[in-house]
């Protein structure tokens, strides 16, 4: 659907705006990011694994590892619903999700699906929930 593509574009535009004011994700790889990569590689044997620390776009200190986006391209996803695919990713990262990782955007694709559109999307901009003093982390 065209409008779907448009919404997708909105995401990427918004994401660029959002990330441009952040500082994290600019080169250095932290321990959490490294752990996510290792665990996904072990669990899902991905053909492609793209991982971006999007924490810089959020109300967290510089260098934080709280918000991530991942594209996992694996033949293990063949025949699985989106829900089942995401659950596999969640299971591999249960420790991180129960601990430091606050947000994880997931693109779980089969190799054929990835070839159709081989890019890591951007997330919508943070709306500052955690900036509020009343907010919960």
């Amino acid at each position: 659907m065209l409008s779907g593509q448009l919404v997708g574009r909105l995401f990427s535009m918004a994401g660029r705006v959002c990330l441009s004011r952040g500082s994290a994700g600019s080169g250095t790889i932290g321990p959490v990011e490294a752990a996510i990569r290792t665990k996904l590689e072990q669990a899902l044997n991905p053909e492609v694994l793209e991982l971006r620390n999007e924490s810089g776009g959020h109300a967290v200190p510089p260098g934080s590892e709280t918000h991530f986006r991942v594209a996992v391209v694996s033949s293990r996803f063949e025949g699985l619903s989106p829900l089942q695919r995401h659950r596999l990713v969640h299971a591999a990262l249960s420790e991180e999700l129960a601990g430091p990782v606050h947000a994880l955007a997931i693109q779980a694709r089969t190799p054929a699906q990835w070839r159709e559109n081989p890019q890591l999307d951007a997330s919508p901009p943070c709306l500052g929930g955690s900036k509020k003093t009343r907010g919960t982390p």
Partner: peptide, 12 residues
């Protein structure tokens, strides 16, 4: 699902 899946369902 969450945001990613709803967006995917919207797109496809």
């Amino acid at each position: 699902g969450g945001c990613d899946i709803l967006l995917q369902m919207h797109q496809n």
